[in-house]
């Protein structure tokens, strides 16, 4: 499924390419068209797949930890933190290239805000799922207010709000091949850290008291799982901005495909997430040429109804 999605996405675009064009480009053809495909389209498609992988896997972890079908990767403040970080990068003159500061600050914001949420819930003595969710809502409100203030105070004709807005709506950056390779390494690391959480997620799904009886140190596990998943989210946000809905839908679709045991669910959610983002990114590039629709709008606009359709069919059967 993922392979098909990647192939389709690689063909789709402002100008459609045939699979044969791709084959020529990959075999070292030096025409302009082949070079364009290699330099611009393929890295973008692969980056989209990586972002989706991270969102799908972390979404499955969040739903497992919080045992809530509405849980999604941006739940614990990472969206607000990433948005604040990117706003700073786009509006405050830092004297560094935005290509560097934007992903970096988005990453720091996303992970940092989850750290704040964990710290707040610990100080408040509520290191359980409900306490963390509430702390997440509170921290998100504060971060949102800060960002709105920054946008009002710092924007002028020179630095436009549109740049901030379009980043928040999500869109996979086209990386260089080196950057892509680095990001692939980071993503592989995130997935390698995520997979050992599978058994703990299964146990915590039995309820906290049963999980404790079965030897899981519940509070420690929740904190560990949240930190690991947030690392994935922060990496995804740094490259792809805020992509609505994928982290919510991918684990559900994966659960229908392979069942609820996390040993199989985590990789399946990662693959489904990768397919979804790759396809959505293709739509974003190809639907209204030469303009490009923000990716987050595509995932929400197309993904929402599609997910409702799947849900209805599943419920009826």
């Amino acid at each position: 499924m993922l392979f098909g999605a990647v192939l389709l996405a690689a063909c789709a675009g402002n100008e459609w390419a045939s699979p044969a064009d791709l084959g020529r480009a990959l075999s070292g053809d030096q025409t302009m068209w082949s070079l364009l495909l290699i330099r611009w389209r393929l890295p973008r498609v692969l980056a989209a797949a990586l972002v989706g992988t991270l969102l799908g896997a972390s979404g499955a972890v969040f739903q497992g930890v919080f045992r809530n079908p509405l849980a999604e990767p941006y739940l614990l403040g990472s969206a607000g933190g990433a948005a604040l970080g990117s706003t700073v990068a786009l509006l405050v003159p830092l004297g560094v290239s935005q290509a560097l500061s934007l992903p970096l600050l988005a990453f720091v914001g996303a992970w940092g805000s989850t750290g704040v949420v964990l710290a707040v819930s610990r100080v408040a003595g509520a290191v359980d799922a409900a306490g963390m969710l509430l702390a997440g809502v509170a921290v998100a409100a504060v971060l949102g207010a800060l960002r709105s203030y920054l946008m009002l105070a710092l924007s002028n004709e020179a630095v436009s709000l549109q740049a901030v807005l379009s980043w928040v709506l999500g869109g996979v950056q086209t990386p260089t091949w080196t950057a892509l390779a680095m990001f692939a390494l980071i993503a592989a690391g995130c997935i390698a850290l995520t997979m050992p959480l599978a058994r703990g997620l299964d146990l915590i799904g039995l309820g906290e008291i049963m999980a404790t009886g079965f030897g899981l140190s519940v509070r420690r596990f929740i904190a560990l799982a949240v930190v690991v998943a947030s690392l994935s989210v922060a990496a995804a946000v740094a490259l792809g901005g805020l992509i609505a809905f994928v982290g919510l839908a991918a684990p559900h679709i994966a659960r229908w495909l392979v069942g609820p045991l996390h040993q199989r669910l985590l990789p399946a959610a990662a693959l489904v997430g990768a397919s979804l983002v790759t396809l959505a990114d293709a739509v974003a590039r190809a639907a209204l040429p030469p303009a490009e629709i923000p990716l987050g709008l595509v995932t929400a606009l197309v993904g929402g109804p599609f997910f409702i359709l799947l849900l209805a069919r599943k419920r009826r059967s």
Binding site: R67, G205, G207, G213, F214, G215, P260
Partner: peptide, 18 residues
């Protein structure tokens, strides 16, 4: 502890339909 002691709680409702 988990292997040596079997604890059967008063209520059990798994979240996922295993």
């Amino acid at each position: 502890r988990a292997r040596a002691i079997g604890y059967l709680p008063q209520q059990f409702q798994p979240y996922w339909d295993l």
